[in-house]
Design a protein around this nucleic acid. Sequence first.
DNA 1: CGGTTGCTCAAACGTATGTTTTAAACAGAC
DNA 2: GTCTGTTTAAAACATACGTTTGAGCAACCG
Lengths: 223, 223
Amino acid sequence: MAQSDTVDRILDAAEELFAERGFSETSLRMITSKAKVNLAAVNYHFGSKNALIQAVFARFLTPFTVTLDTAFDDLEARCKDVPPTLEQTLWALTESAVRMPQRNEKGISIFMRLLGLAYTQSQGHLRKFLEAEYSNPFGRFMKLLKDATPDLSAVDRYWRIQFMLGATAFTMSSSDALREILENKLGVETSVEEIAARLVPFLSAGLQAEIVVLPPMTDETFA
Amino acid sequence: MAQSDTVDRILDAAEELFAERGFSETSLRMITSKAKVNLAAVNYHFGSKNALIQAVFARFLTPFTVTLDTAFDDLEARCKDVPPTLEQTLWALTESAVRMPQRNEKGISIFMRLLGLAYTQSQGHLRKFLEAEYSNPFGRFMKLLKDATPDLSAVDRYWRIQFMLGATAFTMSSSDALREILENKLGVETSVEEIAARLVPFLSAGLQAEIVVLPPMTDETFA
DNA sequence: CGGTTGCTCAAACGTATGTTTTAAACAGAC
DNA sequence: GTCTGTTTAAAACATACGTTTGAGCAACCG
């Protein structure tokens, strides 16, 4: 190995193992043995395990946010005055994720799973890192969502966005396993693109559901 | 302390710590020192850490499934011939969760968080345990969902149920953090009951969204 | 050529973990 | 009173972890 493809091999192995098992459950020794590099290489190149986790995220998140930013530019250019619709915004996001150059066939699945983990596993350092580095494109997405759902209150919108993120991250993070189950059970093959195509209408309908009047949790609620 | 409230003190402490930090991130020493019992007591009473995790789940899941089963009985009794609607089914589930007798004020939050963790943190032993012990009530819920959405194809329903589970598990597994963010940002306090009340209409609308005609993923899709 | 630099390697370090063991106390039941 | 099941205490166990060290190696530069 001429020069350090060691760094990339570590990142590849770490990415895959983190996605499979989570952060705490993945040891540096697993990573380095999968990457076929020396154990000390991680601390030499990245400084610490936490820094490696952040590097894994930076490697796919930075190009993604660039793609996403131009997708939003295109979208806003097409919709001169009126704000983009909810469906258009969601499709722009989905397209950017699906069309990302992938390192391997599992690319999009790993991508989503890691995003889910970042939310779920409460790694303080990761949350701070992501907030510091990527708050801008995320904020732009939120702004578009806000303009596309003017009838929602801020609180309603906040929660529905969480529901949306949850459905997406969860489904995509285990989409390989889910696809397999479906194939065995119903004999149907499904691509990630098709899952996305089913997901967008679901999310769109959920986001635009009729607003409930709180508090609804009385005995009559269940009658 | 006359006889073994040691077991309950261990379960209480473990439940709370697991919900706060996850399974791998919680050590037996944290649990025993919080419970103010001896370290060896865990292995004496439960045999292993994994067995303790399963015991924590069994303690709240068993009464919950009993409650849920009677809730489904009531529901089907009220709807003599016609199958219960989607909203009714979802509310029956939500009601059973919210109305569960709680050990303390954090009860329902911990309950949800643990369920989310069970899905998210891929603890092999836990998944097997839950499948072996609680597959029946889950199957009944699926049957009700199927009867409530007769217009959906099996494939569409399959994916939309995944989306639904994802939104729920994901939101609930980090609901404390999400609640905090919302409180800091908008100065609004939200109870778990209110989250559930917002979630049900979202899921219901998503499940009943118009069915898309595949394949929609052409360049024109994004135009 | 000598010296510096970037990198790899095996080995060790210190710490934390789950688990086990020993002993001694304590309770209630027969 | 004795026995049985609990509980505590303290210590040790073996293992795994993230991190550090120092020697070695190759390439590059003056």
